[in-house]
Structures are given as structure tokens and as C-alpha cells.
């Protein structure tokens, strides 16, 4: 594979974490405009862990993931009972609060004669673990893809057990779900924690690829894109959000056939798809059909 293909594939994989994160909450019936906050939190936490505290890479990624999950659950605890739109705006407010706070957040230490660590709006330089370990882009793509596969496997496992069904019924009809003996709030908080962890892991991996991160990268635009990917790709399966990312980044941006007119084509395409399939391309009905066809 040439360098361009590798970088496109890595991008797709990294964005997929964010898209899956937003998708998990969509399944639980909540719209979040703010999953980029957990991506940012994961990126900063993992970067601080490996660059400032000199932790090993795996521990750094785990720290970023765990931190994202913990903050996700913590933020959901007071907000999850808000009605739909209020929750959505609360996620937006929280994400912008995180971004604005990172703009003034400085935490630097002297590592080998260089001041290392986040420096407010100037960003966070030299997250060099991967670079120093001599990991090639191709090898890093394998690591990112492996982590993504683990996330997909986890969701698939949840779909096999009852976890995913719980999320779905809570999302579809909370009152009827409560009548089945589910604690709606607890289920949604668990979903928010999971979503925060997935985004955090993506952020942690992103920080080590980019080596430089800054608050402006984690804007509302990023989060709204992540949300749209799931809605376009479909709500029926975890592959839906990935399909959304593939269409946008993979097809339109990378093939460059629509050079310059990407968003104009993409926007119109999405609007048309949604008129025909309001729950995305891979919606429940299509997933059902495809799985029935595969079983044959």
C-alpha cells in the first residue's frame, strides 16, 4: 500500500471510533453533538500519560479510553434525564466547555530539556512515543484497525447477549422499556460511558499518530459530522456509522472525482438518501434482510 492509501485508511478508522461513539448514544435514543469532547479528553489524557509521565504506549491508550469512559458516564449522570433536545444541547455545551477549557489548560514538564505537555491554545506538541518507537504508518494502521475491530467485536458480543437489545428498547420507547423492568437511566448512563470510552480510545490513538494536538481540532463541526455518519450509514448495525465514514472520507474525499465539490455532492446525496431511508442505509429492516439472506 502506498502512503496515501495508508493515511486515508487510518483516517477512516480513527473517525469510525467517533462515529460509533455517537451511534451508541443514538441507539440509546439520545442525540449527542459532543462526542468530540471525549475524543479530545482521550487524546490529551493519553498524550500526557506517554509524553509527560513517560508511560508505555498501551498504558497510555488504556488511560485515555478509561478516562473518556469515566467522564462520559459522569456527565451523563445529571444530564441523561433531560428531554431529547435539552440533552443534545447539554452535550454541545459540555463539549465546547471542554474545548474552551483546553484553551487555557497548561501542564508542562521538562522532559530531556524540552517543556513537554499541553500549553493552552498553543496546543500539545511532541507526543512522540510511536514516532520514537519507530512504528511505521502501515504498522500503526494495523494497531488502529485492531483496536477498531475490538470495539466492533464488543458491540457484536453485546448484540448476541442482551446488552444491545436493552439499549435499543430504551432508545425506542423508554416508558415501555421501564415496563419490562429496565432502569432507563442506568442503561443510558452505561451507554454514555461506553460511548465515551470508544471516543476516548479513538482520541488516544489519534494523538499518537498526529504527535501534535490542539483544542481547535475538536470543534462542534467534528462532533456533528460524527453524528451524521451514523444517521447516514444506518442505525441497524454498528457497521452503519463506519459505512457513513467510508462514504464521506473514503469515497468522496479520497477518490477526488468530485474534487472541490465534495460537500456539495455529499450534502445532496445524504438529503436524498434520507428521504428514501429515514433511518439510514443500513437500517433495521435492511440489516434484517441481509442477515436472513446470509443465513440461507
Amino acid at each position: 500500500m502506498d502512503g496515501f492509501t495508508i493515511s486515508v485508511l487510518t483516517n477512516i478508522a480513527l473517525f469510525s471510533f467517533l462515529a460509533i461513539s455517537a451511534w451508541i448514544l443514538l441507539i440509546a435514543g439520545e442525540i449527542s453533538f459532543g462526542q468530540q469532547a471525549y475524543f479530545a479528553i482521550g487524546a490529551y489524557a493519553a498524550g500526557i500519560a506517554t509524553a509527560v509521565w513517560q508511560w508505555p504506549f498501551v498504558a497510555g491508550i488504556a488511560f485515555g479510553t478509561g478516562f473518556g469512559a469515566a467522564v462520559g458516564a459522569l456527565v451523563a449522570w445529571p444530564t441523561i434525564r433531560l428531554s431529547g433536545l435539552h440533552f443534545a444541547i447539554a452535550t454541545l455545551a459540555f463539549a465546547e466547555l471542554v474545548r474552551a477549557s483546553l484553551n487555557v489548560f497548561s501542564y508542562q514538564r521538562d522532559i530531556d530539556g524540552y517543556a513537554t505537555g499541553p500549553d493552552g491554545a498553543n496546543g500539545f506538541r511532541d507526543i512522540r512515543w510511536v514516532y520514537e518507537a519507530g512504528i511505521e504508518p502501515g504498522a500503526y494502521l494495523v494497531i488502529v484497525a485492531g483496536c477498531l475491530a475490538a470495539v466492533i467485536a464488543l458491540v457484536a458480543l453485546m448484540a448476541r447477549g442482551r446488552g444491545m437489545a436493552r439499549l435499543r428498547i430504551v432508545g425506542e420507547d423508554p416508558i415501555l422499556a421501564a415496563m419490562q423492568g429496565l432502569s432507563v437511566a442506568r442503561t443510558k448512563i452505561a451507554a454514555a460511558g461506553l460511548a465515551g470510552g470508544v471516543a476516548g480510545m479513538g482520541g488516544a490513538l489519534y494523538a499518537h499518530l498526529a504527535t501534535y494536538i490542539e483544542p481547535a481540532q475538536f470543534s462542534v463541526m467534528t462532533g456533528v459530522h460524527a453524528l451524521a455518519y451514523g444517521l447516514i450509514g444506518g442505525l441497524g448495525t454498528v457497521l452503519g456509522p463506519i459505512l457513513g465514514v467510508l462514504i464521506d472520507i473514503g469515497l468522496l474525499e479520497s477518490l477526488r472525482v468530485f474534487s472541490g465539490y465534495r460537500m456539495i455532492v455529499f450534502g445532496g446525496l445524504v438529503a436524498l438518501v434520507l428521504i428514501l431511508r429515514p433511518r439510514g442505509l443500513l437500517d433495521e429492516r435492511n440489516v434484517h434482510r441481509i442477515s436472513a439472506w446470509l443465513r440461507r
Binding site: I31, V224, L227, A228, L231, I232, M263, I264, F266, G267, G268, L269, V270, A271, L274, I275, P278, R279
Partner: peptide
């Protein structure tokens, strides 16, 4: 779907 669609048109 309306929300996602209006977002797509925003981008467009």
C-alpha cells in the same frame, strides 16, 4: 432523519 438531512444541507 430531518435533523441529519438539514445538517447535510448545511454542509452543502
Amino acid at each position: 432523519a430531518s435533523m441529519a438531512s438539514s445538517f447535510a444541507l448545511w454542509m452543502q
